[in-house]
Each structure stands twice: as C-alpha cells, then as structure tokens.
Design a protein around this nucleic acid. Structure first.
Lengths: 335, 335
DNA sequence: CTGTTAGCGCGTTCAG
DNA sequence: CTGAACGCGCTAACAG
C-alpha cells in the first residue's frame, strides 16, 4: 500500500503538503497540486481508511444484526438497508445471531468498540423470550441503535415496526365481511415472538367483534408441521379460510388444503404473510399480507443515518410501516 | 469511550503499564495488574478496534460481495461464510452488487484500502458478460480473493465451484436409467450464466449418450414464466420428467404438472435445483439437486483464512463442492 | 504557499 | 517491575 509518506519522499515535499494537495486545499499552489495528483494517480494511491477512521472517529460503517438471512423477510430488509446505506457511502457489517442471545451480545460488544457508527437490529428469539436487554443499553449509550420488526419496548431507541395488529385485524375482517367466512383458522409458527402475539391479537379482536369463535393452530418448533396441518384440516372440514402469520405456513396450508380436496378459493380462502415473492412458489398464487420488507430496511437505515448525521441527540421515535393486503388467486377478490 | 489514557490517569500509572497489565504481561506486578483489571472492568474498558487495526495492519474483517441476498442460494452461502468467519473471530462486510459491474468495482476499490483483509465474491452477471476483470487484478495484488460459484477463469485466485456439469449429467442419467424416462424436459431461467451453460451441457451429454432427443425450455427474463410452463406442458403431454437448473422453475413446473392432470411421480418426475428448503414450500416435497450452499460458504471462508493466516504466498487452487441428488417425493425413488 | 508539530488509541521497544 | 518514546497513516492547527 502506497502512503502519503512515500509520495512525499518521492516528491521531496512534506507529508502534509501532499495531504492538502490531494484534498485540493487552496493553501497549495497549482503546480505542486499537479505534481502530487499525477504521481498519486500513477501509483494508484488511495488513502488508508483505517487511519482516516481513527483520526475522525467515524467509520462510515453500520452494524446490521439479524437472526437469519435464510428467512426471505430478513434478506429483503437487509437489501433495503444496503441500498440506502450505499447511497450515503456507508458500508455494513452483517452479523447473524442465529436467534442466539449470546451471539447477539458478542456482536454488539465487539462492533461497538469503534468498528461501527451505529446499529440496525432485529432481536433474536432468545433475546426476546429471556428479555435480556443489557447489551443494548450498554452499547446504546454511545452508539445509536435502530430496531426493526422484532423490537423490545423497554429499550430506548428508534424503532421501525410493522402494523402487525392492524394488518391481521384487517385481513380477518376482510375474510369475514367480504367473503362471509365463518370458520377462519389462524396458523402460526412464531406465536412466542412479540410480533406473533400482536398478530394473534389482531385476529382475536376481529373474530370477537363478529361473534365468531377463534381457531388457532400453533406450530411452534413442531417437527412435522405439514403433517400437523394436514391432520388438522382433515379433522376440521368446516374450516373455510386460513390466515397465516408467518412466511411459510401459509404455503404449507395452501398445499394441504388442496390435498384434503378443497377448492381454492371457492371452498377455502388462504392468506399468507410476509413477502410477495411467495406467489412464485405457490399454486394458485397465494394472496398475502405484504410486509414491505424493502421499505422497512430503507426506513431503518434512513433513521439511523439521521442520528449519525446530526451532532445533538435526536429524540427516538417509532415509525410504523403499513403492510398491504395483496389479492392474488387464493382469495375470492382478485388482483 | 474509555481509553488506556484515562485508565492510566485514574490509576496514576503510565499508559503502557495499563496496556501491559491488561494483556497479562509478566513485566507487571500482581498488585498493579489487579488494580488495573478491576478498574477496567468497572469502567467497561474495551480496546478500540480501529486503533488496533491501524497498529497491526490487520482488520479481522472479510469483504463479501454477492449479486443478491434474495436468492436463497446466495443467502445460504453467506450464512456458511459467516459461520466459519465467526469461529475464527472474523467479521464480514457485505456488499450487494445487484448484478452490476460498477457497484462491484466500487465495493472492491473502497474496501481494499485497508478496510478488509480479504474478499469472497460471486461475480455479477454484468461482470461476467462483459468479462471485466481489472478490478480483481488491481485488488488481488495485495489482498487475497476467493471466488465461488460465479467465477472468472482468467483471474488468478482461489475458487470454489459447483459440479454443475456433473450433477445435471448424473440427474439426467438417473431419470433415464432408473426411471426409464424418455421425454425429459430441462427448464431454466439462467441459461446465459456460465453455470447455466455448464448445467445444460451436462443434460445434453446424458441425453445424447442415450439416443434421446433434448427438450429445453429457456425462460430467461420471461415475464410470465408460469403461464409459459403451463402452456408448454399442455402442448407436450408426452413429457415424463422435468429437470430444473435453477432454484425456482422446478417448483413452478411441479405445480403446473399437477394442473395439467399429471400424477407425480407416477406420470412425471420432477427434480429441482439449488437448496433443500425448497421442499417446505412444495407439495409433494420436491426432489432436488442440492448444491450444498452452506458448505460452499464454509469452504470459501476457510480457504481465504488459510491465505490470511500464512505469511508466505499460498498457491491458488480450485476446489469443487459436490452436489447431492436428494430424493423426496417427486421421484419414484424416495428418501 | 509550504513545513513542522501534535494527536487519534494502541502496542512495543528500550531505558531506567 | 515501571515509564518514556515511537510509529501505524492520516488530518489539522499553527508557524514561517
């Protein structure tokens, strides 16, 4: 790596002259600037970012800590984050917590020692169930944190949440009022997460308001979710609508509905959750509550950059990204 | 952020004494060590990584440049990379090229100026079609590069490739010899990528050896691939097996086969490509050529770490990660 | 217009 | 056993 020092030596000028010349300071004469710039280009000089970071105590790097990248929702959020960060010349260090509290803590503690200017995080399952928040508070004192989707209310920081309650409430209402469904099954494998609870609450409220009775199938970490769903549908043929609150069980339920001989959407409506791409792998194309993952990522990054850009402390706020009920071919109303 | 200097001041000792005490140097007396360690813990002292990096000219960070994270194959590879890096206390900076040459170049040039110790990359589509390799050579002189999956032969670096040709050849042979299929359709949306071409070659060789005639459906960037597939299957009812060489069209074809009234796997066998999780969203569970994406990531990271760990130059090599034909429920042979 | 000096935070000689 | 001094590469205040 060629450094300022080398350039200075070769040109018989001082280091700071070179530095100033390269940053086009008006303290330096045209001729010297030209000499410097030419040699720099010739030798392909690039300032060492680490040294700049040490000097400025800014890294232009954001730490992104997510539970998984194999979950398409998180993958898309990260894509949104990257897009916005790139527009502002920031890089991102990605850590995958694997839903582990310990890993999440380690990532925060390591990166917070100068490696990043801020964090964007969706907290791990274990962190949420154990309600462990020390690492956030420890780090958050010096480094801004933005939480998205999986947030912890007790941590004071900026948050980007999904309208979990409302979106499921609305979808349930739709099934009741527009499609006149009577036996609506809610299906889930994330009932222990905060977002899962909000979504279930939305369902329960809508069901309660209509005098119907709830049917909830909680799969959790069930080993054979598909068999489980199949058996349930077989034993409960009166089910006339299925609403999934995660990105996978909706498609499973759709497939199993066909197997038990239901016509879709005539006999049974299906609404999935999470991301629009689900329609590519489902048949018929599944209708979904689209969480707008990309936007969530963009918003998270923008809010963080606001904090990084301003000198004084900005008050923390919580913004909500509205989901959209997208009608494809598993509901009676079509696109 | 608390620094060595602050600790030194509070304890009335010199900075270097604190530094040595914290690294448990035997130059320092027990009592001093204890005093230092206690205060350090109390004030939650953590060494500034940027300063360490500048000093050591090692960052313990790897740059990972991939075309996309929404493609589950790349998401899983990145997961594998992260797992291995984490075991060795490395972090990763992830850049998404979005298949753009310009973005890929920018990532390489920026990160190579001290930010990372090495790179792992799957080259962008545009880079591959334009065969632009200057940025790799420029950076590769000082910083080791590992390419995976989408590699460029002319660049001298370590490579991790998939047995694209062989895996598709074997799967085709299987369909011919074990299942006695006569009209095997190859379906693809990546025929312009190098890996796509290798896979098609594997198919053609197996077909040719058996005296059958090839049937290839190239979807490219087709807007309505599903309709396209449906129409094709309708017009060609003699098709008795489908082999997809990407991670998505196999599931589409499976769904459409059911729609045209085929029994699976009695009337028609389906083999998908890419990742085993595909079975969760397909019904019946799709049989696949599993690319071992996680292993590819692990291997890439390990090879890079070898280079980073050794002082002298290690010769570049190319390793191949073997895929596995996984039998689920869309082939006559079952798991 | 150019150079000297200092310092970001750390680790590591070398002197005492 | 402890401290002073230096340098990693860069920027910026301050002299000249």
């Amino acid at each position: 790596m060629v450094t300022l020092k080398e350039l200075a030596k070769l040109l018989n000028v001082s280091i700071s002259t070179v530095s100033k010349a390269l940053s086009d300071s008006n303290e330096i004469g045209e001729t010297t600037k030209n000499r410097v710039n030419e040699l720099a280009r010739e030798l392909n000089y690039k300032p060492n970012r680490i040294a700049q970071q040490l000097k400025s105590s800014k890294t232009m790097v954001v730490g992104v800590v997510v539970p998984s990248l194999m979950n398409p929702f998180f993958a898309e959020v990260v894509h949104g984050i990257e897009t916005t960060l790139d527009n502002h010349n920031y890089d991102m260090t990605v850590c995958i917590s694997n839903e582990s509290l310990e890993k999440e803590q380690r990532s925060f503690d390591l990166l917070s020692t100068g490696s990043v200017d801020g964090f964007i995080v969706a907290v791990a399952r274990e962190t949420q169930t154990k309600h462990s928040i020390n690492h956030f508070n420890r780090v958050g004192k010096n480094t801004p944190i933005v939480m998205f989707d999986r947030v912890i209310n007790d941590v004071e920081c900026t948050k980007v949440v999904v309208d979990d309650f409302q979106s499921v409430y609305d979808a349930t209402k739709y099934l009741i009022q527009e499609e006149h469904r009577k036996k609506i099954l809610l299906i889930s494998n994330i009932e222990e997460l905060s977002v899962g609870k909000y979504r279930i609450n939305g369902y329960n409220k809508a069901i309660g308001e209509s005098g119907l009775s709830p049917n909830i199938l909680k799969l959790g970490r069930e080993k054979n979710p598909r068999t489980f769903i199949y058996n349930y549908l077989n034993k409960n043929p009166e089910i006339d609508a299925i609403l999934s609150i995660d990105h996978i069980t909706g498609i499973m339920a759709l497939n199993k509905s066909k197997l038990v001989g239901k016509r879709i959407p005539e006999d049974i409506s299906v609404i999935g959750f999470g991301y629009e791409d689900a329609k590519y792998v489902s048949s018929p194309k599944i209708s979904v509550i689209d969480q707008k993952a990309f936007e969530i990522g963009q918003n998270s990054a923008e809010l963080l950059l606001n904090h990084l850009g301003s000198v004084e402390k900005i008050p923390h706020k919580t913004i909500m990204v509205k989901s959209e009920l997208i009608f494809n071919d598993t509901t009676q109303k079509k696109a």
